[in-house]
Amino acid sequence: MRRFAALGLAALVAAGGALGAGSVAVTPAWAAGNVSVTGLPLPRFVSLKASRVNVRVGPGNGYSTKWIFVRSGLPVEVIQEFENWRRIRDSNGEEGWVYWSLLSGKRTALVSPWDDAKQVPLHYAADDQASVVAILDPNVVAEVESCDGKWCKIRGKGFRGYAHQDSLWGVYPDETVK
């Protein structure tokens, strides 16, 4: 009987503490901030490795899916890490959590995704006077070979050349990529 009374008293104390005015909201560890688990810089750009990637509301399979990417190679920005999960941002500014193995360190970029009408000239060399070898439509995905802070050498199916760095989403302004 004493055992049951002690358990009952412990339950009342716990309930009172949880419901009392002095209760404290518990913040999940992953919400604490930008701590790099991998030692890699935050934020940073990566690309989707898989052709189907679930983006979740939190860092775990128990969290619901916000949306699903269905195209590999798209660039995303890693803005937070928690254990094996990466919080990412897409070119529309949407954020969610992705399991690390679905991401690749391969650098890709989207051509002017912020302007559906802006086509981007691709030059033979990193010079506005160099001949134009292609005109790229918005949202074309390109592999980033290198960037010097002003120009990026990119390639994709049927094209290869230099584009202004500020016309690409997937590289930072003034970033050097080797």
Rank of each mutant, 00 (worst) to 15 (best):
R2A: 15
R3P: 06
F4E: 15
F4V: 11
A5Y: 15
A5L: 13
L7R: 01
L7I: 10
L7C: 06
G8F: 10
L9V: 14
L9H: 09
A11P: 09
V13R: 09
V13I: 12
V13P: 15
V13C: 13
A15S: 12
G17T: 15
A18T: 14
L19W: 09
L19P: 15
A21V: 14
V24E: 05
T27F: 10
P28T: 04
A29G: 13
W30N: 02
A31K: 12
A31D: 15
A32R: 10
N34V: 13
N34T: 15
V35T: 13
G39M: 13
G39A: 12
P41Q: 11
P41Y: 08
P41R: 10
R44C: 11
F45N: 02
S47M: 07
K49H: 06
A50Q: 08
S51W: 06
S51D: 09
V53F: 00
N54R: 10
R56D: 00
R56T: 01
V57C: 02
G58V: 07
P59F: 05
P59I: 00
P59A: 01
G60P: 04
N61D: 15
Y63M: 11
S64E: 12
T65W: 13
K66S: 07
W67L: 05
V70R: 10
R71I: 03
S72F: 00
L74D: 07
V76C: 03
V76R: 00
V76N: 01
E77G: 04
V78R: 00
I79G: 07
E81Q: 07
E81A: 06
E83Q: 14
R86M: 09
R86H: 12
I88G: 08
I88Q: 02
D90I: 01
S91I: 04
G93N: 05
W97T: 00
S101E: 13
R107S: 08
R107C: 03
S112Q: 05
S112G: 15
P113G: 05
D116F: 11
D116P: 01
K118M: 04
Q119L: 09
V120K: 04
V120W: 05
L122F: 10
H123L: 07
V132Y: 05
V133Q: 03
A134S: 10
A134R: 01
A134T: 04
I135K: 02
D137K: 12
N139V: 10
N139Y: 06
V140Y: 02
V141G: 00
A142K: 01
V144N: 09
E145Y: 14
S146P: 03
D148V: 06
G149C: 11
G149Q: 09
K150M: 03
W151G: 11
K153E: 12
R155I: 01
G156P: 08
G156A: 05
G158A: 03
G158W: 04
G161E: 01
A163V: 11
A163P: 00
H164F: 08
H164Q: 07
H164V: 04
D166G: 09
S167T: 12
D174W: 04
T176N: 14
